[in-house]
Design a protein around this nucleic acid. Structure first.
Lengths: 344, 344
DNA sequence: TTGTAAGCGTTATCAC
DNA sequence: GTGATAACGCTTACAA
C-alpha cells in the first residue's frame, strides 16, 4: 500500500501524539500512560511500523550487531561452535554478523571495516587476525572477546578451552592404561589449541619420560582434517617402533587414521593401540569410529563468550577477564576406561 | 587518543576541505581531483576515520546487510551451505547477518524484526518461516530469495536444487544395476527436498512398477540424522522381503544405516545391497562409508542464490526468477557403476 | 571540481 | 506524561 515505509512521525500523526511519544512508547523504560502507549501501538500495527535501526544506531552510537570472526568452517568443531554462538547472540537480543577470514589476503584491512558498523562487540574465534586489529576495535570503543587464541591480552577479554588440561588428560589416561610408547599428532600448521594440547600432553608425561619407561614422540600431519589422518597412519603404523597410544589433537584426524589403520594392521593388533581424539565432534560417536576423546563443549564456550561480552558491555572499564572452560574425557572403544589406576 | 571516533567533518577540517568533499572522496563514482582525494585519504588515515554505516544507511535507505535465514545447522549439508553463503555474500561486498530459526516459537515475529535493518536482501533457506513473512519483506522493498523451499512464488526469486532429478537419478541407477526390490527412506517430518526426492524416485520407477518386476516401498525414519539411519536398519534388514537397493534422502541417514548394517548382515550379503545417499557431504567420501550418492553442490546453490539477489537489486521490477541447480551421481562402493546398462 | 545546505528517522534534553 | 527541539554523521542536490 504505502509507498514509503512508515516512520515514527507517521505513527504519531495517526495516533494523534507527538513523534517523541511514539519513540518513548517503544522504550520499555520510559513511563508512558497505558492508554497512550496502547493507541500508539495500534497505529504502529496499522501502518506496519518498524523502528529504523540505522537511525537508532546513529543516535545511540551503538548497533545491536555483534561481529563473529571465524575461519576454517570446514572443520566441524568450528562450524558447530559458530552455530552455538549464533544462537547465543540471538538469545540475548543481539544480531550476529559473521565474517569468515579464511584464505583472505587482507584480513586486517577487512576486519577494520567492521568498525563502520558501530558493533556492540566482536568475538574473534580465528587465530588469523593480528593482535593489532583487536586493539583497533577497542580503541574505537568496541569490546573484543578472544576465543581460544592466546594466553594473555591486557585489553580484550579471553575465553579459552582448557587445551593444556586436555593434553594432560589424554596423557594421564594412557599412563593409567599402562601405555608406554606414545605418539601425539597435530597439524603441521600450529594453532593455539593444538600447540597447547601437545604442551599439556608432554608436560604431564615429563616425569615418566625421564624414568625411561615411557617415551613420547610428536608427529606432524599435513592439516587438521580426515585426509591428513588417513595419510599419517602409514608413517605411524609402519615405523619400527609402533606406538601403543596415540593422541590426536583433533577428532577428524583420528578418524582418518582409524579408517586408514584398517588397511594396515589387523583388528586384533589395532585393539592393542589406544587412540584418543580431541573435541568430541559428532563423528567421534559414530559406530564406525567410537572414538575415545576429550570433549570440548562448544555450547559452553559459546555461552561463556557471549556472557563475557555482555558483562563487558555492562561494565566497560573493569579489568579484562580470562577464563578456561573445563574439558572432559569421554571413554569409548578406542581406549577403554581402565578398571583400576596403575598410579596413585 | 581521540576520545570520540573521527567523523567526516574531522577529516575535512584536517584536510582543509569541506565535509562533502570528504564524503565524495570515498565514493569511487564521484569525480574528484586526484590531489584533493589524496589529501583527504591522508587525513582520514591519520585520524583512523571510518565511514559510519548507520548514517550511510539512513540516507541511502539500504544497508549492506543481507539476512541469511537458516535452521537445522546440525545437519552438515546445511551448515556447509551456510558457510558457502557467508563467503559469497562477503565476496560481493555485502555483510551476512545470520538468523537461525530452529526451535523458535515466534519465528515470523522475529523475522519481522529484520525489516528494521534496511537489509539489502534476505535469503531464506529454512522451510519453517511462513509464506507471509516473505511477502512482508517484499512489501518493505527488501528482495527475498527462497532456497529449496517451494515450487512457486509470484514475488520472490527461487533457487532450488533439482531434487526431483536427484530422485530420478537414484532410481535410474538402481534399474541400470538390475536392482528390483527398492526402498526409499526419508525423515518422518516432511521437508521440501525430501518429499521432492521421493517423488522423483517413485515417478521414474512408475513404469517399471506396473510391470510387476520391480517394487518400491517408502520407509520413514525418525529424523534426518545418523542415529535415525542406525535405527531404521533393523526395520529394513530384518524384513522378510529384504531390498536390494536403498535410496536415502540424506547421506547422514545412509551412514547411520551402513554402520548399523554391519551388525545385522554379513559383508558379503551387504555387498549385494545397493545404497545411494543424497547430498555428498564430506562424510560420504570417508573410507568407512564410501557412499555412492547424489551430489548437490552447496557452492553452486550459494553462488546462484547470491547472484540472484544481486540481479534483483539491479533490476527490482523484473519478474521473479526460478532456477534449479543440477545434481550429479557420484559412484562409490555402495553401488558400483554398471558396466553396461540393462535398459535402453 | 568544490562548497553550502537540506534532509534521513531516531533518541535525548528540556520545558511544560 | 507529553511535546518541541537539537543533535547524530552521512549523501546529495544546487550553487559557485
Amino acid at each position: 500500500m504505502n509507498k514509503h515505509t512508515a516512520t515514527s512521525a507517521d505513527v504519531a500523526a495517526l495516533a494523534g501524539v507527538s513523534q517523541s511519544t511514539v519513540s518513548r512508547s517503544f522504550d520499555p523504560n520510559s513511563r508512558i500512560s497505558v492508554a497512550t502507549r496502547q493507541r500508539v501501538f495500534e497505529a504502529a500495527e496499522q501502518l506496519g511500523y518498524q523502528i529504523n535501526k540505522a537511525a537508532q544506531t546513529m543516535i545511540k552510537k551503538r548497533s545491536d550487531l555483534v561481529g563473529l570472526v571465524t575461519a576454517g568452517l570446514e572443520d566441524p568443531f568450528r562450524s558447530e561452535f559458530l552455530h552455538k554462538l549464533i544462537i547465543e547472540v540471538q538469545n540475548c537480543g543481539l544480531r550476529p554478523m559473521v565474517m569468515d577470514v579464511s584464505d583472505r589476503e587482507t584480513i586486517d584491512e577487512e576486519l577494520h571495516g567492521l568498525i563502520q558498523y558501530q558493533l556492540s562487540g566482536v568475538i574473534i574465534t580465528s587465530g588469523t587476525p593480528s593482535e593489532n586489529i583487536g586493539k583497533a576495535f577497542i580503541r574505537h570503543g568496541i569490546p573484543v572477546v578472544l576465543v581460544n587464541r592466546t594466553e594473555h591480552s591486557d585489553e580484550a577479554d579471553i575465553v579459552n578451552l582448557d587445551n593444556e588440561g586436555a593434553g594432560e588428560m589424554a596423557a594421564k589416561a594412557f599412563i593409567e592404561s599402562g601405555k608406554t610408547n606414545l605418539v601425539v599428532v597435530r597439524s603441521k600448521k600450529p594453532s593455539f589449541s593444538s600447540v597447547m594440547r601437545v604442551k599439556g600432553f608432554l608436560n604431564y608425561l615429563a616425569p615418566f619420560l625421564s624414568g625411561d619407561k615411557v617415551n613420547a614422540t610428536e608427529v606432524l600431519c599435513d592439516a587438521g582434517n580426515y585426509d591428513s589422518g588417513y595419510q599419517i597412519a602409514d608413517k605411524i603404523l609402519t615405523s619400527q617402533h609402533k606406538p601403543d597410544g596415540i593422541f590426536f589433537c583433533m577428532d577428524h584426524i583420528a578418524c582418518g587414521f582409524l579408517d586408514s589403520a584398517k588397511r594396515l594392521v589387523s583388528p586384533n593388533e589395532m585393539s592393542a593401540i589406544g587412540v584418543i581424539g580431541c573435541d568430541d565432534i559428532a563423528l567421534a560417536s559414530f559406530r564406525a569410529y567410537d572414538l575415545t576423546t576429550i570433549r570440548q563443549s562448544s555450547s559452553e564456550i559459546a555461552r561463556a563468550s557471549v556472557e563475557t561480552l555482555l558483562n563487558r558491555l555492562q561494565s566497560p572499564t573493569s579489568a579484562p577477564s580470562k577464563q578456561a572452560i573445563p574439558v572432559e574425557l569421554v571413554y569409548r572403544s578406542t581406549l577403554a576406561k581402565p578398571q583400576r589406576t596403575n598410579i596413585e
